[in-house]
Design a protein around this nucleic acid. Sequence first.
DNA 1: ACCATAAAACTTGTATACAAGATTGCGCTT
DNA 2: AAGCGCAATCTTGTATACAAGTTTTATGGT
Lengths: 222, 222
Amino acid sequence: MPLTKKEIIELLKQEILSLKLKPGTILSETSLSERFGLSRTPIRDILKQLSLMGYIDIYPKKGNVVSYIDLESVEQITYLRSTLEKEILKELSPNIPLKGLHKLRYILDMQKDCIQKEESKEKKMEEFMALDDKFHKTLFVLAGRSFIWDLIQQFNVHYIRYRRLHALKEEKLAQLQREHEQILDCVVRGDKDKIDDMVYRHIRADINSSYLRENFMDYIKQ
Amino acid sequence: MPLTKKEIIELLKQEILSLKLKPGTILSETSLSERFGLSRTPIRDILKQLSLMGYIDIYPKKGNVVSYIDLESVEQITYLRSTLEKEILKELSPNIPLKGLHKLRYILDMQKDCIQKEESKEKKMEEFMALDDKFHKTLFVLAGRSFIWDLIQQFNVHYIRYRRLHALKEEKLAQLQREHEQILDCVVRGDKDKIDDMVYRHIRADINSSYLRENFMDYIKQ
DNA sequence: ACCATAAAACTTGTATACAAGATTGCGCTT
DNA sequence: AAGCGCAATCTTGTATACAAGTTTTATGGT
């Protein structure tokens, strides 16, 4: 059974976010037509949508390529996210719903387990990051802001790939998990002053790091 | 000379935002083809893009209509905007660049002039709102966050139309202008505590008002 | 007059032929 | 061997024919 357009979009998004499709990879209409057994018209719809969300760049009459990671976009999105997340956490603090708190703690325990697992670094990172998303999304949901979470996710290509690459670093996963625990503690204790600083550091930790430029230069814009 | 696709998109966006095209108006591919002298293919590209930004709703095999104002989207976007704007203003306070301050004051003076003008209510509102956008955008630019401003603008259809309709109310323009003055004063004085409250009230002022439901029911979703 | 049903006329979705710009590569000139 | 020019071959952009749903209309029966 052939895939629907929606499924193809999701598939391509996953391939781009997971870096199976590296930045710079050419996605020509004809090649995708053959791959998915569709004519160029619906494929063009798909490419158009991916381009509006920043997954690909369309060069008229030249071709389409998987977008390079735009560090400026990362900087701006992390500012947006940390600002919103600070506000949300302060709203949840200290009277966070008990059911939600349990869910968050459960996610953090699973992250801890994940780190201990005997798997490849890539697979562990993949699994950990899914839990990471779940953690942050849960916070937005608890605050009644899932709409905003979904909105941000739509144009999060650059930040997600950036974060995945940083997560390959030694000890990075453990650090992220620890920060989650600390943030949650602050929320429970109602220590609002500390929240600002912790969230800012957690989300924007590596924003001035040269790690990507040094190790993944060919993934980065310009 | 025929319009380019970009120009057509801008034109339709303006017509929708200004409510010349009322929510619910049917935008069929053939009618737009005839209007702009293009075949259905490029028109479909345009409609697709407008739909991804929330300007229209596409009902497969049925038709395309100008979207109704979604009050839930308005609520969420105002939260997003007020949260970010609070943060930005606190960053700018109290050492706002002098040149920027002059520009902001100039915009506010023009708003004051605008209110006094002898024009139709609609025309005045149009002009005032352009200045309003300029004011808020300038704040984002001064804080180095024009990227985020542009991002928000992309899916701002519902909020912009909502705000325009509210701006038709008696005394609303004067109120908005006054609030701008007060916010700017707080920034200059470095009165950060007050900023939070003022911005929140300024942007989310009418969020619980029934004005739209009572006077423009046929513009609203559901 | 009412209702059921079928056909006609709409809508958008897809495939495909052709247009037009961009790139590549080959052969010629120097 | 280096550089120029043109043609072949890529790419995406557009127009159009047809497919496949949805709505409307008309028609026939009761």
